[in-house]
Design a binder for these strands. Structure first.
Length: 301
DNA sequence: AAGGCGTGGCT
DNA sequence: TAGCCAAGCCT
């Protein structure tokens, strides 16, 4: 006697591909990094910027960035501080530094071309498991499990029957993602983009709209009555009063200054001298700020 | 492996 | 309002 009530069978898995990809064909956003002229460099830049930052905020910075540095070598030739300045208010400015470092590595080690090999991508600064798979899949059409927060949520619901995926990516999630991956490259890369877009537009963290979902009829979570998340709430990101906030204020001063700024200008952004000094030291240690002689500071040259 | 790391919009 | 959330990476 066969159990038909729990894990989806391989047949079920395959039956997800067609409706999700058909939905994607109809509803995919026309994003600049999805256009053919973006190239692998455009895809890579977008992936760096999209790490923890919404599409709407990335769009203008992406356009400026690609216009100014159309190839990795163009960025590699700049001072790292220019990358940090051009990053603007996207947040997590270490990403700008890492993207600059990746451009240098690409220029030196890969003749200026974004590598297509997953392992070579993974070796670049700022590129982890997700971004390596995303670039290889989106830019080069390869077959990779692309597990971002959107895909993890879609899988948690459709296959796992729960509202949210675990806090950290588990081996079980990777296994499921590989099992769900279509066999041929073309379909696999399409599936990766489509399942991600479904999570971004329809199967969202809050306010999901199952009436627009192409796989609602097969979704384990919906079929179970959409039970609420069990267990502890996910760790909240406190921000007010943290070193992160101070770092942000300090860096904003340096971004907006075209010449080195005196210590006094930095002192003005935060009244606790101990925390202020700790934040500044951290920025220097991270390579985001360069101390000069005479108590002057600037973005790294 | 848990926590640090920006910023802003939305509920 | 005060969280919650957004195509993660690194140590």
């Amino acid at each position: 006697m066969t159990d038909t009530t729990t894990e989806p069978s391989p047949a079920d898995a395959a039956s997800l591909h067609a409706p999700v990809i058909a939905w994607f064909d109809e509803h995919a956003r026309d994003l600049p990094w999805r256009r053919p002229e973006a190239g692998a460099w455009g895809v890579m830049v977008s992936e760096f910027m999209l790490q923890q930052t919404p599409v709407s905020r990335v769009l203008p910075v992406y356009e400026q960035w690609l216009a100014r540095w159309p190839r990795p070598a163009d960025l590699a030739a700049e001072a790292p501080g220019e990358a940090v300045r051009a990053w603007g208010r996207l947040g997590y400015p270490r990403r700008a530094l890492r993207l600059h470092g990746a451009a240098q590595a690409i220029t030196e080690r890969h003749s200026g071309d974004v590598p297509s090999d997953h392992g070579q991508l993974l070796a670049l600064p700022g590129i982890g498991e997700y971004t390596a798979a995303a670039v290889a899949s989106f830019a080069y059409g390869q077959r990779h499990a692309v597990l971002d927060t959107n895909v993890r949520r879609v899988f948690a619901r459709a296959a796992g029957g729960v509202q949210y995926p675990p806090t950290a990516t588990t081996a079980a999630e990777r296994k499921l993602a590989r099992a769900l991956l279509p066999d041929d490259e073309e379909t696999a890369s399409r599936w990766a983009a489509a399942s991600m877009e479904l999570g971004a537009l329809v199967c969202t963290a809050r306010g999901e709209d199952c009436t627009r979902c192409p796989i609602a009829a097969q979704c384990a979570w919906r079929l179970a009555g959409k039970p609420a998340h069990e267990g502890p709430a996910r760790r909240g990101q406190t921000y007010a009063g943290t070193d992160r906030q101070v770092r942000g204020k300090l860096l904003a001063v340096l971004r907006d200054a075209r010449t080195p700024v005196p210590q006094s200008a930095l002192d003005a952004v935060w009244n606790d001298p101990v925390q202020r000094a700790r934040a500044l030291d951290g920025l220097v240690a991270d390579g985001l700020v360069e101390p000069l002689a005479d108590g002057l500071y600037r973005l790294p040259g």
